[in-house]
């Protein structure tokens, strides 16, 4: 022996460590494999470049997910276009959203607070901004008093409206190390400006747009349309003004004061037969502007929407 003995000992030790690592991993992973039968199902839909969530009771949320503490949740993760990866770093939740597949992952959120949801798989132009917020709320339904559960009713049914309740003011004041991350969008409901004087969405949004204040459109003589900050949250004003009246031949300047990309595309929704055929600005990046030439439009009312956020609608009347 002699010469070879130390090598065999070394290889033996390495192999033993590896077997231990493997066995531990197997055991942990095995215990996580099946979701508890009483878990609530949330459908997570990844799409360039936002997340939407469908709860079992039909509530739908966009870029915000409200869950209750201590309740097992089972996520069904799907994608509408390319591969995304649904990731909540603080809870080690990671599962790819693959077109044509339904992947599942489950978790019990044990601490209340606000957490980051992000996309971990490269998905294109705005991959880095594909973030959402997770709100873990105290589970009041477990308490004995029935009144408290009715009190919590509006909090749940209001969906995204709870943002201001859960995290009043700038939500960046975090409590735990890696836990709380400042989230870029959407802006705070109470601060949402109504007109074109939008200034990003306050100081909470130092995101990729280099923080420049969006110049509101009305610099040129023509009519202007602006997308106010916070427009990517359903319920907020989506276009300002929502109904725009111009005379034929005007060139409309569209300015995006929000922190997410938007479009102004004709049609009441993406499923309209002629959606995008009359006018379409294509993606307008945050703080960027685009123009719509109305010279070729017929007189009358033309509804429009945003292809990225189909719940954003407005109407254009050409005289």
């Amino acid at each position: 022996m002699g010469h070879g003995t130390p090598e065999w000992v070394f290889i033996g030790v390495v192999t033993a460590i590896l077997i231990w690592v493997g066995a531990e991993s197997w055991q942990v992973e095995h215990s996580l494999e099946y979701a508890p039968p009483n878990s609530e199902t949330v459908r997570v839909i990844g799409q360039q470049w936002f997340w939407s969530f469908q709860h079992a009771d039909g509530t739908q949320e966009i870029n915000e997910l409200h869950v209750k503490q201590g309740v097992p949740y089972r996520f069904e993760i799907v994608s509408n276009d390319v591969i995304h990866s649904f990731n909540i770093p603080d809870f080690a939740i990671l599962m790819d959203a693959v077109p044509g597949r339904v992947n599942t992952m489950w978790n019990i959120f044990d601490e209340t607070g606000e957490y980051l949801i992000e996309c971990r798989e490269y998905c294109g132009m705005l991959h880095m901004d594909m973030r959402a917020r997770l709100f873990v709320e105290p589970n009041t339904e477990n308490s004995t008093s029935s009144t408290s559960s009715t009190e919590s009713e509006p909090t749940i049914s209001q969906g995204t409206g709870t943002a201001t309740i859960v995290s009043p003011g700038g939500s960046e004041v975090g409590s735990t190390g890696t836990g709380t991350m400042r989230v870029v969008e959407p802006g705070n409901l109470t601060q949402t400006p109504s007109g074109g004087t939008a200034n990003g969405s306050g100081d909470t949004s130092s995101n990729g747009t280099s923080g420049d204040n969006a110049t509101s459109g009305a610099t040129a003589g023509g009519p202007s349309l602006s997308i106010p900050a916070g427009a990517s949250t359903p319920g907020n004003p989506s276009y300002s003004p929502a109904t725009l009246t111009v005379s034929k031949g005007d060139v409309i300047t569209v300015s995006n004061d929000d922190t997410a990309p938007h479009t102004v595309t004709n049609g009441a929704s993406p499923s309209d037969a002629d959606a995008g055929k009359l006018f379409d600005t294509s993606i307008i990046m945050p703080a960027a502007t685009a123009t719509i030439d109305t010279a070729s439009l017929e007189a009358g009312e033309h509804p429009f929407h945003c292809t990225v956020h189909p719940f954003m609608t407005g109407s254009l009347t050409v005289q």
């Binding site: 980051l116 996309c119 971990r120 880095m128 991350m181 995101n207």
Partner: peptide
Amino acid sequence: PRRVVDYLP
């Protein structure tokens, strides 16, 4: 995440 041009401040 990897492959991001921007990260949270």
